[in-house]
Amino acid sequence: MLVTAEGAVRIWTINLPKAGNAITGADFIAAFEAAVDAANRDTGVCAVVLTGAGKIFSAGGNVREMADRKGMFGLPAIEQRYAYVDGIQRIPRALARLEVPLIAAVNGPAIGAGCDLAMMCDIRVASERATFAESFVTLGLVPGDGGTWFLQRAIGYERAAELTFTGKTLDAATARNWGLVSRVVPHEELMPTALELAGQIAENPPRALRMAKRLLQESRTGALESTLGMAAAMQPLAHHDDEHDRRIAKWRSA
């Protein structure tokens, strides 16, 4: 995976175009985790944009390796179970600890685990060339990467069920109508749009951004009372942040 910087924004590019930007390889997963940990350590990072090299966002798993029973796909069933835990499932776990906002710039097909990866992001912007498919059942498989958890939180249970049970492909316009992405733009405007959005996010204080993201994540599954408790604990930290003082001073002088 390529990692580049534009100020307080990091760009992560899945760089395996000949393999459909597959996200199941051990090297890729390790690089993905390393990118997450690096962004967390660097308090100057305020947002990340994730995209794919070439014409595909990600085709998900390596179907060729499945067909040839290579790697984990040649293991006995019980060992395959642990291979999923120690393999692709490390990606949603890594993103669960990513502290900064993550924008998916979906430049082309996002299929299977590639679709799920987009759903793991906080915000999704799609090229008009993008397509989406929760296609596991068409190969006699189930989403092994947590897709059933993420997809229904993005578009609701009923639509997630339709995509999961049919494996059908959505074009970008339909994905926008279903709430799968927040906006669709001409292909050549995809990265400028995603970077502009990331830049708007990065204009805000980094520590407040990280705490706000954690509150949003906890609020997806937590009870109201626990969310209120966390907010009450975080807000004094924000009040005593130097950046808050600077923002208040700027407000006073406006």
Rank of each mutant, 00 (worst) to 15 (best):
K213I: 04
T148Q: 14
I155S: 09
V142M: 15
A160Q: 10
T166W: 08
A194S: 14
D145L: 12
P186L: 10
L216S: 12
L170W: 15
L141C: 05
T166C: 05
T169Q: 13
M211R: 13
T138W: 00
V185Q: 11
E196K: 09
T193C: 11
A154E: 03
A212T: 07
V184C: 10
A161K: 14
A160P: 11
L141R: 12
R210P: 01
L151R: 09
E196F: 05
K213A: 02
L195S: 08
H187A: 13
A175Q: 06
Q200S: 10
G156I: 06
L170V: 02
P206G: 09
R159T: 05
P143T: 00
V142N: 15
T174V: 02
R153D: 12
L151E: 07
P205E: 11
T164V: 11
N177P: 00
K168T: 02
R210A: 00
K168I: 00
L180Y: 14
E189H: 11
M191N: 03
G199A: 07
E196C: 07
L197T: 09
R214Y: 02
P206Q: 04
R210I: 00
W149N: 07
A208V: 06
E188C: 04
G146Y: 07
A212L: 10
Y157H: 13
A198M: 08
A208T: 09
A202M: 04
V185P: 15
E162L: 12
Q200D: 11
G179N: 15
E158R: 14
Q217D: 15
E218V: 05
E162N: 07
D145T: 13
A198Q: 06
G179V: 08
